[in-house]
């Protein structure tokens, strides 16, 4: 099978799975209504949707454009279904590509990224199931004052380790976005854990523009 045939197969499978999952996910609230014989509170529904949907759909569209080139085809179809992209799936794929020594935009990169994300999704699903089954004994442990500070710092710990690898290798293109993001997050109180997901595409655009300018106007990035 050549690469084009394989990619067509991935896109076909992705379309079938993702469109089916859309229907299955929507079935949950609909079945709740049917089983318990209730209708949604339409007033609350429209108000809730109005407060949530415009921002989430806008972010969702931008996330698709930003993440797909990084995750590859197979990895994207899985990641957008299983969620936790920026905090689990993408770092996992990045680490896998790095440890396998392949580029994201190669045939091997597509395969490695899909394998890493699939394994990560399987492990996540299993651990959450175990967590749900053992929730009573686990709750006091996971919420204990000793462990709580550690789990509160998972994102800094993750991106410290990833950052040192990727920034050291691409420091020329990292300088501008790092300075801008540092300044923005320190100066603007509204930028925090709730808004960092929205800032990823913004930062990606800033990096691309800065890199393009450096690439076209200077010889710096060609060395």
């Amino acid at each position: 099978m050549d690469n084009k045939q394989y990619m067509n197969k991935v896109h076909r499978a992705g379309a079938v799975w993702n469109l089916s999952m859309t229907g299955i996910l929507l079935a949950f609230p609909i079945l709740v209504c049917i089983i318990f014989n209730v209708m949604p509170d339409w007033h609350g529904f429209f108000l809730g949707l109005l407060a949530t949907m415009p921002m989430y759909w806008a972010v969702g569209v931008i996330e698709v454009i930003t993440y797909v080139p990084m995750l590859g085809a197979g990895g994207s179809y899985l990641s957008f279904v299983t969620g936790n992209i920026s905090n689990v799936k993408l770092p996992c794929a990045l680490n896998a590509l790095d440890s396998a020594g392949v580029k994201a935009n190669s045939e091997e990169g597509e395969v490695i990224s899909t394998i890493a994300i699939a394994v990560s999704s399987i492990v996540t699903t299993i651990i959450i199931v175990i967590g749900v089954i053992l929730i009573v004994p686990l709750t006091p442990v996971l919420n204990s004052p000793v462990l709580e500070p550690a789990f509160a710092q998972i994102i800094p710990a993750l991106f410290g380790a990833l950052g040192v690898v990727f920034i050291s290798r691409n420091w020329k293109i990292a300088v501008v976005p790092c300075i801008i993001m540092l300044a923005a997050f320190i100066a603007v109180p509204a930028l925090n854990s709730s808004t960092v997901g929205i800032m990823v595409p913004v930062s990606a655009v800033i990096t691309i523009v800065a890199t393009r300018i450096m690439y076209k106007k200077t010889n710096w990035l060609n060395k």
Binding site: T66, M70, I167, A174, C178, N192, S193, P201, S203, I208
Partner: peptide
């Protein structure tokens, strides 16, 4: 093409670097 790919990765990491300092 390679720079574009790396820019996307670095963009994500820069956003989280900013978040660490929020």
């Amino acid at each position: 093409g390679d720079l574009l790919q790396n820019s996307l990765f670095i963009g994500m990491i820069a956003a989280f670097l900013g978040f660490v300092f929020c």
